[in-house]
Write a protein that binds this DNA or RNA. Structure first.
Length: 132
DNA sequence: GTTGTGACATTAT
DNA sequence: CATAATGCCACAA
């Protein structure tokens, strides 16, 4: 009885479906990294600001500042995140000067007592999320 | 597959 | 102060 050799594919058959990693099209609602960052952003206190890097770190993703930016840009509108409280390293507003967003962010920050000078929030306004 | 882009950060020059 | 080089990683094309 010629025992049929199992085919290569049969031997390396998918470990039951799960192995079929479905990359692509990960809806933000299922992206735990984004979720974590949204959580962090939501608790940045009024009258203060923090940085993208800080958000990423506090969310458990150190070194992924860009993802923090991505998280903000893709946050559902209904979430009402305090997006204006997130700034670049050193307190620098990350939008191009004179852009709509830049002006709006400046306005919102000032409206809650944060001093913004030359596109930067003062150091005193910056809060490390470790302290919260 | 690869490449380019980006609400970034850090370090070095 | 400014620029460049890296690192980082999801996405779109």
């Amino acid at each position: 009885m010629a025992r049929a050799k199992k085919s290569f594919h049969a031997l390396f058959r998918p470990l039951s479906g799960e192995a079929t990693r479905r990359r692509r099209a990960v809806p933000p609602e299922e992206n735990s990294a984004l979720q974590a960052m949204w959580e962090v952003i939501a608790r940045v206190p009024r009258g203060h600001a923090t940085t993208y890097g800080d958000v990423a770190r506090a969310a458990g993703y150190p070194g992924r500042a860009r993802q923090a930016g991505y998280a903000l840009g893709n946050a559902p509108d209904g979430m009402h995140l305090p997006w204006h409280r997130i700034v670049g390293a050193g307190g620098k507003i990350s939008f191009p000067p004179r852009s709509r967003s830049h002006r709006e962010q400046t306005r919102l920050l000032r409206s809650e007592g944060v001093e913004v000078k030359n596109g930067r929030v003062t150091k005193a306004a910056l809060v490390s999320l470790e302290e919260i």
